[in-house]
Design a protein around this nucleic acid. Structure first.
Lengths: 356, 356
DNA sequence: TTGTACGCGTTATCAC
DNA sequence: GTGATAACGCGTACAA
């Protein structure tokens, strides 16, 4: 009843609705509804349509999408689930998604799992309760209970960056196999043979494909990769990369020629570890990454990496989601987006043979 | 009628609702509603409550929040409007917001304006149509039509990082004045007197406060800042920073001792421009930034900057939003979060007098 | 071409 | 304590 604090409630209450427009234009509100939504059933006389439209504009009518959602069972909102938006690979993907879906009137609900599966399942439940029209999942594992839950709930799903083992959901991913193959071939072409790798958990398709890309290329070239030149991180962070590199460096007296890292953050950790071990890069050890996160060309030394088309992955995923909404069968289930090798200072052509 | 493609529709249709639970437990659905929502009016007998609850769990009941929203006029969703999520300052803020609001059942709708005011106003309209409970605005200008529109629509608003001239909306911001003051004092203490600055548009409170922090400190120290040592960028990007630096460097034959940049990205552009001009950093020119974006300690040279507590700003903004929902008057209108000077290699104590 | 009437799944306000 | 019932604002088959 007060003046100041009821402002918002008043605003809501005062909000002009379909029937207000109808009353002001002297027609029934169902007519207004038809006028305002192109693609409705019956045709409308031009003069009525025009009158209704101007009245609606004058009154500042905006449809209440919650009411519409209740009726249509569609909220025109979609969820985006990521482990952590602070990982620089996600923002460009979000941009791409927005580019594809925003013109169609969709809004994006972003949630971080914090790398916690329980949280992630809970997020899916909450999004389901909100009747999101679909979910973009950037956390997909090769065997994924989250994917199963979405499917159990009947929520259209598109995986981002990763895919399940059986390719059970539509997915738009980077060609990690091809990217790492190109990287490994370049490492070999640069003259290196004593190669080390830092891998990531193999329940992620990205990590597995990258590892396969390395392995197959080395195998074809007949280059051995002994166990003591292989390390793994439980999570793709700089901290873990540093730790893994320390393990690698202490495994043998001599350092490897080059360390191929599963991604950029891990590579940054590797750089730190090498520095602390008194090794300089690239003269003592070359290092490579993957992703091409921002500023990577500015660090010392500029990191050799593979650039993913993250924005394009997001955009394509948006398209897949839209075609799924239209009931079109998705094919192929897994769509691969190309990437590009970027050679920078952290990887140098081998100058001479190492002293034995 | 087919089997595969109607799966989702079936799921929606099949979805267990209040009345299903009611039927299965032999009570009226309004009773179920009361049981399931703590804090409803009438008290319920324990046995009925228990029965209803178990039945609900068995049937896998989940409330339809769209229907609830239609009734309550609250969607428990809030909008976050940023220019571009690719700017690394935003993700930590989003995390902070989620930390504060997610436990309360709120979801966050993220939208990028792409630095376009028309788009931004449109986003507000769309969010209003979705009945968001509130909006976080990270784009606030000193005079801001977007703020006005939100207020006109009666949507609770919290500004992030920036504030309007008249402090018309609750805001949680960084203490940019203090941060730049500390930076400038350190620059002076390092022995520099020939100082250049790169500023940003003064319709942003961040840019203006930083500039004031610099100016006041120099004034107090009696150090002059001639016009040819002042440049400005239309947008805080590396590209613009590079361009502005080129302008600075060509204005006079001698380069300044140090360039104080409005933020890190601009500073990175400055580094690039200096390199191209054959100047080395910090021996020829020192450079400073602001924000402490990720990897800044890894670039060459490591950039001296001011670290903002971005996550904390997001969290605090979430708290402000919540207390606003509870009808509590916000005070003070502008809440400042402290920041910290980080001195790194890009700024070195002046060794000797420059040759004249 | 336009109006009628019902339903979407809840919440809230009544009675009883 | 519990049941009945009216909104909430819109979409749409159907009638006119």
């Amino acid at each position: 009843m007060a003046d100041g604090k009821t402002k918002r409630a008043d605003n809501r209450a005062t909000r002009v609705k379909l029937s207000d427009v109808a009353a002001a234009s002297g027609v029934h509100y169902s007519t207004v509804s038809r006028v305002l939504r192109p693609g409705s059933k019956g045709r409308i006389s031009d003069d009525v349509a025009k009158r209704v439209r101007t009245v609606a504009k004058e009154l500042g009518y905006h449809p209440n999408s919650v009411a519409a959602s209740l009726r249509t069972q569609s909220t025109r909102s979609i969820g985006l689930i990521v482990h952590d938006m602070n990982d620089p690979v996600y923002p460009p993907i979000l941009s791409g998604i927005e580019e594809a879906l925003s013109p169609q009137g969709f809004a994006v609900l972003v949630s971080n799992t914090g790398y916690n599966l329980e949280v992630e399942l809970d997020i899916v439940n909450r999004m389901a309760a909100r009747l999101v029209d679909g979910i973009f999942l950037a956390t997909t594992r090769l065997q994924d209970p989250v994917v199963e839950r979405c499917q159990g709930l009947g929520i259209p799903l598109v995986s981002l960056l990763r895919q399940t083992e059986q390719e059970t959901s539509p997915a738009v991913i980077n060609d990690c196999y091809g990217g790492m193959q190109a990287m490994t071939e370049h490492v070999l072409a640069s003259g290196y043979r004593d190669i080390a790798v830092i891998l990531a958990p193999q329940y992620l398709s990205t990590a597995r494909e990258r590892w396969q890309g390395i392995k197959d290329t080395l195998d074809r070239a007949g280059v051995a990769l002994p166990d003591h030149r292989i390390a793994a991180v439980p999570r793709m962070s700089a901290e873990e990369g540093k730790r893994a590199t320390e393990t690698l460096l202490t495994a043998r007296a001599s350092a490897p020629d080059v360390i191929i890292c599963v991604n950029d953050l891990v590579a940054i950790g590797a750089i730190r570890a090498c520095r602390e071990a008194g090794l300089s890069i690239p003269s003592d050890v070359s290092i490579t990454g993957y992703n091409d996160i921002p500023l990577l060309d500015m660090i010392d030394p500029a990191l050799t990496t593979v650039r993913m088309q993250l924005h394009e992955i997001g955009r394509a995923a948006g398209q897949v989601m839209l075609s799924q909404f239209e009931g079109q069968p998705v094919s192929p289930m897994t769509q691969r987006v190309n990437c590009e090798l970027l050679v920078r200072a952290s990887l140098r052509r081998k100058s001479g043979p190492k002293p034995t």
